[in-house]
Computed example of a mutant assay.
Amino acid sequence: MIRIGTSGWRYPEWRDGFYREIPQRRWLSHLAAHVTTIEINGSFYRLQPPANYRKWAAETPPGFTFAVKGPKLITHVKRLRDIADPLKTFLGSLALGPKQGPIIWQLPPTLRFEPAVLKDFLSTLPPGRHALEPRHESFRADAYFDLLHTHNVAHVVSDAPTFPCIEAATADFAYIRLHGHDELYISSYDDEQLDEWAQKIRDWNRDTYVYFDNTMKGAAPYNAQGLARRLGVPLASHT
């Protein structure tokens, strides 16, 4: 199972390109007709009411999947410590039903790998698919990979010019975020780069979620479709 999509969908920059002649109220359904998954980013910045998740689920086709970014209150403010209460509140807000995919936890670039802290955090997570995106070089460590493997949490393989790209498969699924190789959130991936990522995904040989986050100039949906074609996976969800 390989699902490929974009990180978010509310981008005015796409108005004259991918969303040309599409009213804003239909942006989500339009994108969901061309990819099989989308990463919800709004949950990172503030708690979303269950009604929002139900609305988004209703606007997407059967078989569609959302990944949900965990709140920055947990990752950036509390920095993975003493998070039982906000975690319970966040999990209680989710209302995607069968369209619920992985939860991604994006760490701040100043957060170093501390084995005890990470172990406690991973032990607190409920069952389900979780992925962790560290942005500090100290996470390039066997002890980190071992912790994720023990808890079946995927290390997020991130491609960006401003933080390390650490390639490791640590769970029964893989999670990739492509932020733009040369310019963060901007650069489009060329044919050679898409070929390389397609081969890496084949080599990992496991369920994989891929999100293009190079959104600022509108490359993300087109890159997502290009990678999907290379891997022979559907360009849209189906029952």
Rank of each mutant, 00 (worst) to 15 (best):
R20A: 13
F18T: 01
P98A: 11
A58D: 13
P115N: 15
T239W: 15
D190R: 08
G128N: 10
L107N: 01
I38G: 00
Y185H: 11
V77E: 01
I201W: 04
R202Y: 02
Q193W: 02
F163S: 12
Q100N: 07
R202V: 09
G226N: 05
P12H: 09
P108E: 14
W204A: 07
G8P: 03
L147S: 06
A228T: 05
D182R: 12
P127S: 09
N214L: 15
L47H: 02
R112P: 04
A51G: 11
K55L: 15
Y175I: 06
A228D: 07
K78N: 10
D85V: 15
V157R: 12
N152R: 14
E21C: 06
G5F: 05
D159I: 13
R81D: 09
Q24A: 15
T75F: 01
T60C: 13
W105K: 02
G128Y: 09
R177S: 03
L31T: 09
Y185G: 09
K78M: 13
A67H: 10
E133T: 07
W204E: 08
R46A: 08
E196H: 10
I104E: 00
K88D: 14
H34F: 00
D120M: 05
T37Y: 05
I83P: 00
G5W: 01
H30S: 07
Q193V: 02
V153W: 01
L94H: 03
R15D: 10
D213H: 15
F44E: 02
D203M: 06
D191G: 08
A160N: 12
L80P: 01
V77R: 11
R140F: 06
E133L: 05
A116I: 02
D159G: 09
A57N: 12
G180R: 04
K78F: 06
G17M: 08
R54I: 12
I40A: 00
N205V: 10
L31M: 09
A224D: 03
K217Y: 12
D203W: 04
K69Y: 06
I103G: 01
G63N: 11
L80W: 08
A160C: 13
H30I: 05
E137G: 03
A224H: 03
K200W: 03
Y45H: 11
L147Y: 14
R140W: 05
F163Y: 15
S7G: 10
H151R: 15
E21Y: 03
I22L: 13
G17N: 06
F212D: 11
F44N: 01
E13I: 06
P115H: 14
N41G: 07
T239M: 12
F90L: 11
V35Y: 06
D182T: 13
Q225N: 05
P109Q: 15
P23G: 11
T75W: 02
F64K: 10
V68M: 04
H149T: 15
A33W: 00
P108G: 13
T89F: 04
T60Y: 15
L47M: 12
G92I: 09
Q199Y: 02
A224I: 11
R230E: 04
L194H: 02
P61F: 13
A220C: 10
F121A: 01
W204M: 09
I103K: 00
L194C: 00
I22W: 03
